[in-house]
Amino acid sequence: MTAQLDVVVPEADEHVCPLPHIPEAVSLVRRRVRTVLAGWNLAPDLAEDALLVISELITNAVVHALPPAVLRLSRVGADGRGALRVEVTDAGPATTDGRPVARACPGEHGRGLDIVTALAAESGTRVHRGGITWWAELLAA
């Protein structure tokens, strides 16, 4: 099954991408986002950290939450300086008893938000009518 990603780019410093609710979402989105970050001329270390944070937040949305989910990237600063904000918004928990939508690999489960916290200058969640937004801000080194 091949998923297509429709992309909405409201302005040059923002990138919005609906997330397919399939296990392959992470690799599909990483490829697209790598191109966006390269076009923004982000520092290589910031871009690599951002890709890891994005991967973890997307995985959480696909494994633990209801669709739809959306990735939003925004940058502050230019030429690799400043910050990158990553947001993944989903429709909330998949089930009331915490069961995931998709099966996670048992040996690779439970460290994602720790990775996000370690790499981000700031991170958190925002609960709203449409669901939950998980966010992280990364600073250029």
Rank of each mutant, 00 (worst) to 15 (best):
E11I: 06
R32Q: 11
A141T: 14
P68W: 11
T96N: 07
A47C: 07
H15Q: 09
G39Y: 09
G98L: 09
A136G: 00
T96K: 11
R129L: 00
G77D: 04
L42M: 09
E108S: 04
P44W: 05
L84F: 07
T95R: 12
R99T: 11
D6Q: 15
R34V: 06
E14P: 02
V101T: 13
H64F: 13
L28A: 00
G130L: 02
L37W: 09
R103M: 08
R85G: 00
G92S: 07
R30N: 11
V7H: 13
S27Q: 14
A78Q: 15
L51K: 10
C17Y: 05
G92N: 01
V53S: 01
E137G: 00
P18T: 03
V63D: 08
V127M: 01
R126D: 04
T35D: 03
D13K: 00
R85K: 05
R111F: 15
R129N: 06
P44K: 02
A78T: 13
R85W: 08
P10T: 11
G131N: 02
A118M: 15
V88H: 05
V76G: 00
R31S: 13
A78V: 11
L84A: 00
L46C: 06
T133M: 06
P68H: 06
A136T: 04
V88T: 09
V86A: 02
L46T: 13
T59D: 13
V7F: 09
D79M: 08
V29D: 03
T35M: 02
E11V: 09
E48P: 00
A120K: 10
L139E: 15
V26P: 05
V9H: 01
V7G: 02
I58N: 05
A43F: 10
T59E: 15
H128F: 02
A25T: 02
L57Q: 14
I115K: 05
N41T: 04
V86E: 07
R111Q: 14
L73Y: 03
W135H: 06
R111Y: 15
P93T: 09
P10G: 07
I132T: 06
A104M: 12
T133G: 01
A140M: 02
R30L: 13
Q4V: 14
A50I: 11
I22E: 14
V86W: 08
V101K: 14
V8P: 00
